[in-house]
Design a protein around this nucleic acid. Structure first.
Length: 512
RNA sequence: GGCCAGGUGGCGGAGUGGCUACGCAGCGGACUGCAAAUCCGUGUACACGAGUUCGAAUCUCGUCCUGGCCUCCA
């Protein structure tokens, strides 16, 4: 099986063949830390987290680099507005970013360089560009000279004339060409600055990614990711700088995620529909937000809605319901070659291999959940019998023994074991379904969801002894006192507790 | 204005030439004391017009609509 990725450079899906078959390098543009991450910032993080997980599974070593931009005029403005030092803003925002992304289930990158710690490399790169005639200093600025790079515009498919014609930028008088962009700019005394051959100043926006990717991944590397809106000018400029400075190819696969709207509108502060990750986490567990994100293919436009969040939560309830019913089955080690044939179904990995088709992978999870739910009712008693003799886990080896003596019973048990593992390991690639199912339904994460359903959040009910109530209700049921049984159930429901009577007389509960 | 995406059933959302995507909601049924959960069954679809083809949601051309980029932006 081969992984295919859509390469913005060629505008086609290409087979992914890394430069070094044992070591893949991936760079994704990270946040500018001046404010809380919004839900649009989260999309590339989640998308490339899935790609990272997929690459890690397939290649011996993956180095994932995601920068933090901690020098920027928006940061300067935020610091000024609050009357605090710049590093107060950047430290606080970076911390919040880490917390938020972790809540969304994103693995930390292998390297997270900061722009302010890569200044020397940026200056060196700018000097090289000047020496090679691709850049020039003027009035304390250094500018990249676009006409010096014939291929400029290839990534974004802008031709040079259109760029000039369409340019609405005020053209600074010291620019030799209106398209020339800043590599270095002077800083006043009250702005952050570093000494350089062109005086005290700070880097332009694009150079940092060129310098940081080179530092950690080399001049040529495999994957560069980011939002589609970064294609121009940011990635186009990065490409120009890096190719000209390094005299080497830059990125082999450019991967861009699509844009996001909120309730059908562009998210913007002026429309008042700006949603931070933090706000959304109040509505639903991060895992549900993550699934809501992955239910749309990464290159498609995504409309972020409360309804979508609720649907994703419902999907997870369904998946976790199946996993709960299969909780006594062994979790197989996917790295054990003996398991690979069983664990990896055609349902999850092939869709992801096809340019990260997460919606189809999720459809595969639904299929497995349905197949599991079909088998469970007629096996529940057997599962209980097999696990009650002190042994809590139903191992693969045990089931094989059952098959040897009773194929009709053992085979469906094995089917269930496989379904559980497919869901678990498929879910791991998507970054979901790794919680304990009981915790999912009964723990704290289950209680903060109702907002998106337009339902009043139930009162926290730690004072109610749920098990005692269930016992009382079952006693009433046995006495055929259904009025009392229903009263207890309604009382619990009002407190946010839903009861589910299992066949066999057991009653389970979950938070609504 | 230039460039680039996208328009699929009540909703979300896959699918690139012929075969049920999937999920939610709806409706019918099973299970249940009644529910919940779950299972089974089921209707409505490919923006519009023309063309290519034995055959098009899928290819071509045109039209309309939406969004993005061109300026900081995921």
């Amino acid at each position: 099986m081969t992984l295919y990725l859509y390469n913005t450079l060629s505008r086609t899906k290409e087979a992914f063949v890394p430069l070094n078959p044992d070591h893949v390098g991936m760079y994704v543009c990270g946040p500018t830390v001046y404010d809380l991450a919004h839900i649009g910032n989260a999309r590339p993080v989640i998308v490339f987290d899935v790609l990272y997980r997929l690459l890690k599974r397939r290649f011996k070593r993956v180095t994932y680099v995601r920068n933090i931009t901690d020098v920027d005029d928006k940061i300067n403005a935020a610091a000024k507005a609050e009357g605090v030092a710049i590093d107060v803003i950047t430290a606080r925002t970076a911390k919040a970013y880490h917390d938020d992304m972790a809540a969304l289930g994103a693995l930390p990158p292998d390297e997270e360089p900061r722009a302010t710690q890569t200044i020397a490399e940026m200056i060196a790169m700018i000097e090289t560009l000047i020496a090679k005639g691709h850049a020039y200093a003027a009035e304390g600025h250094v500018l990249f000279h676009v006409p010096s790079f014939a291929e400029y515009g290839r990534l974004s498919r802008h031709n040079q004339d259109e760029l000039i014609a369409g340019a609405r930028v005020e053209v600074a008088p010291f620019k030799r060409d209106p398209r020339d962009f800043v590599l270095w700019k002077p800083s006043d005394a009250d702005l952050p600055g570093w000494d350089s051959p062109w005086g005290r100043g700070r880097p332009g926006w694009h150079i940092e990614c060129s310098a940081m990717s080179k530092k950690y991944l080399g001049v040529t590397f495999d994957i560069h990711g980011g939002g589609r809106d970064l294609v121009f000018p940011h990635h186009e400029n990065e490409l120009a700088q890096s190719v000209c400075a390094n005299a080497a190819p830059f990125v082999r696969y450019w991967v861009h995620n699509g844009f996001l709207t909120v309730e059908d509108e562009k998210m913007s502060k002026s429309l008042g529909n700006f949603r931070t990750v933090r706000e959304e986490l109040e509505k639903a567990p991060g895992e549900a937000l993550r699934l809501a994100m992955l239910k749309t293919h990464y290159r498609q436009p995504l409309d972020w809605t409360d309804h979508g969040i609720a649907e994703a939560k419902a999907d997870l309830d369904r998946f976790y319901g199946a996993l709960k019913a299969m909780r006594s089955f062994e979790v197989l080690d996917p790295n054990d070659p003996a398991n690979t044939g069983q664990v990896w179904s055609v349902q999850i990995v092939p869709p992801l291999d096809d340019d990260l088709n997460t919606p189809r992978a999720i459809a595969g999870l639904h299929t497995m959940a349905r197949q599991a739910h079909r088998l469970i009712p007629r096996l529940e008693a057997d599962i209980e019998r097999l696990t009650e003799s002190g042994q809590k886990v139903l191992r693969r080896a045990d089931i094989e023994a059952v098959i040897a003596s009773n194929e009709a019973l053992g085979k469906p048990l094995m089917e269930l074991l496989i379904r559980k593992n497919m869901m678990l390991h498929g879910g791991a690639l998507l970054g979901i379904l790794q919680n304990d199912p009981l915790h999912w339904f009964q723990g704290a994460m289950a209680t903060i969801t109702p907002i998106v359903r337009g339902v009043v959040s139930p009162v926290v009910t730690s004072s109610i002894d749920i098990n005692a109530q269930i016992e009382a209700r079952n006693a009433a049921k046995k006495a055929r006192n259904f009025a009392e049984a229903d009263r207890i159930r309604d009382e619990l429901k009002a407190a946010g507790i839903v009861l589910e009577d299992r066949p066999g007389g057991k009653t389970e509960w979950r938070r609504a």
